[in-house]
Nucleic acid binder design. Structure first.
Lengths: 92, 92
DNA sequence: AAGGGCGATGTCGTTCTTGATCATCTGAAT
DNA sequence: ATTCAGATGATCAAGAACGACATCGCCCTT
């Protein structure tokens, strides 16, 4: 499933055309990014939640040079699926 | 940020009212769930991707009885943030 | 219609998260 | 205003995540 498929879903559940649906998708993504940039968590009941967490891993591995790599500290996006979403998967 | 905030974002970038915006959000979530239930990956360029992966962890812990618990195998949702999203976080 | 550029994959070893459970508390959703 | 999903914490061990890079796949924009 890609962006266009999501726009299709909107199209089906509304009277908007594809172009307008895509704009909606973009605006949503934009707002999500904005929130995450501000270190805000995004919580969608019944689906899941996004959170910004500190990157703690201190070492990586350069497979070519076969030596350790220092990993700069930073941020990560962590997604946790909600119970409802988990259940639907279990049933499958 | 919660569902209502997302609806707000749609409201700002369109001529739809809050109720309609919420319906759009719901339809999107619904389609996302449907795709994941079918083990389909959801890929949003510039944002990130969701994938359904097999749960391999085989043990949990019952804190009360202090003993291991067998974990039934199942599925998990894995989210990976895209390059663009990572960059915006790094800048922060 | 088609190429460009982002995402997926595999690799490595160390560090860190995951995962079930239950009670309690916060707060999202209706 | 009410309800109930989600976060938290404690627990241990095994599996996953982490960065860099090349290659392949394919989404997205032209």
């Amino acid at each position: 499933m890609i962006k266009n498929d999501i726009a299709l879903a909107i199209e089906k559940n509304s009277e908007f055309n594809r172009a307008k649906s895509l704009l909606i998708v973009e605006s949503i993504l934009k707002s999500l990014k904005a929130a995450l940039e501000k270190n805000q968590k995004v919580e969608i009941r019944g689906f899941g939640s996004f959170r910004v967490v500190d990157k703690k891993t201190g070492f990586g591995r350069d497979i070519r040079r076969k030596k350790q790599i220092k990993i700069e500290k930073g941020k990560r996006i962590k997604f946790r699926s909600g119970q409802e979403l988990k259940n639907t998967l279990v049933r499958k």
